[in-house]
Amino acid sequence: MVEHKPMASFLGHLSLIVGVVIVAFPVWIALVIATHDNHSFMSGVTPLWFGKEGLKVFVTLFNGSASTGGVSVAHMLYNSALMALGITVGKISISILSAYAVVFFRFPGRMIAFWVIFMTLMLPVEVRIMPTFQVIADLHMLNTYQGLIIPMIASATATFLFRQFFLTIPNELIEAARIDGAGPLKFFWDILLPLSRTNIAALFVITFIYGWNQYLWPLMITTDAKYTTIVVAIKHLLAVPEGEVMWNQVMATTILAMLPPVIVIIVMQRFFVKGLVESEK
């Protein structure tokens, strides 16, 4: 029986409230600044309440402004969503298939193949980015959605996680599937995929946020404004060689860039938590 201690409960709730305030305060400031004209922020006094501009800056961004090269924020959100979903689906598909091959098939060099995949974790992105850029350039995939997505879909981490989960599948289940006449594809589709849904959900959230927040790779391979992602757009809004930075547009774009990952986390929260705390983990 858990003893109820009012002071401990009070301190716990107080800590949570303070944590929420610390995390939410910068977001509140960004939202407030987005409702002011740019001169209000440039005066040196940070406003703490909404301004008279209201949602005008959001309307301007969705219609396309000079600061964003005439490309609307809606199109940039589309680019980011397409890239993030492409990376997510690609990572999960390749990782689950490679883990399935390593665990359930017996072929020469399978463990060597797994450890080669696993050792790629030791290579930071900065080491691989120039060779990858050269390959994409040689394949004429600069300024394309394929160039944004394909180089980012391999994942040693996801392969390792699926492999560890597949190793927990009891041999009795595998033998029962064989007795029932289930071939490799049927076993994978009807048994492994349903059992892996919480793992897939957890990895979906992680990889979607990873893909959405990509900055360096889209910045390198896209020079055409119509392929600009929302995260790169924030950098373009800040890179003003002459004149003043439109901080209200920067903050409004930042708020819009935060919304899709937050929505994904809220929608997938139950599956995400379950996938991380299952006993098999």
Rank of each mutant, 00 (worst) to 15 (best):
V267Q: 09
M119I: 09
V2E: 09
A176P: 06
L193Q: 08
S155Y: 10
V23H: 04
E172K: 13
S72R: 14
L148V: 10
F104Y: 06
M141D: 06
W28Y: 14
G86K: 01
I136C: 09
K274I: 00
M42A: 15
V232L: 02
E244G: 14
W115C: 03
S40G: 11
A257K: 00
L203F: 08
E126G: 04
M246S: 15
L55W: 15
P170N: 10
A34D: 00
V116T: 13
V125T: 09
F187W: 04
Q249N: 04
E3A: 07
M76Y: 01
D180M: 01
I92E: 05
I169M: 11
Y227K: 06
R197I: 05
V18Q: 06
L139E: 01
A177W: 00
L85A: 13
L121V: 10
A84Y: 02
R106I: 07
F188A: 07
W212P: 05
G86I: 00
S80W: 00
I150M: 12
E278K: 08
I255W: 13
A81S: 13
L14I: 03
G243W: 01
V27W: 12
M220K: 13
D190K: 12
M1N: 07
A176L: 03
V45F: 05
L55V: 15
E280K: 08
M220R: 10
A66S: 15
A66V: 14
L219H: 04
F50I: 15
A66H: 05
S15D: 03
A158E: 02
M220V: 13
P170C: 09
T132E: 09
I265H: 04
W115S: 06
V103L: 01
V21A: 14
L142K: 07
V127R: 05
N171A: 11
I266M: 13
L238N: 11
A99D: 06
L256V: 15
A30Y: 08
T46C: 03
Y210G: 13
R163T: 10
N79Q: 04
V277Y: 07
F187V: 08
V103R: 04
M152A: 14
P260G: 04
E53I: 07
V18S: 10
N171F: 05
Q249W: 12
I33N: 06
E278V: 09
F104I: 07
V232M: 02
W189Q: 11
W217F: 12
V205L: 10
M7P: 00
N171H: 11
A99H: 10
F25V: 09
F104R: 07
V250H: 04
V102A: 14
V89Y: 05
F204I: 03
Y145H: 14
K226I: 00
R163P: 00
Y215P: 05
F271K: 11
I136N: 07
G51T: 14
Y227E: 04
S65T: 15
P26R: 12
P218W: 01
I33Y: 04
T144A: 02
S65A: 15
V245R: 02
T198H: 12
T144S: 13
V27D: 02
T132N: 10
T60L: 12
S196E: 00
L139S: 03
S95P: 08
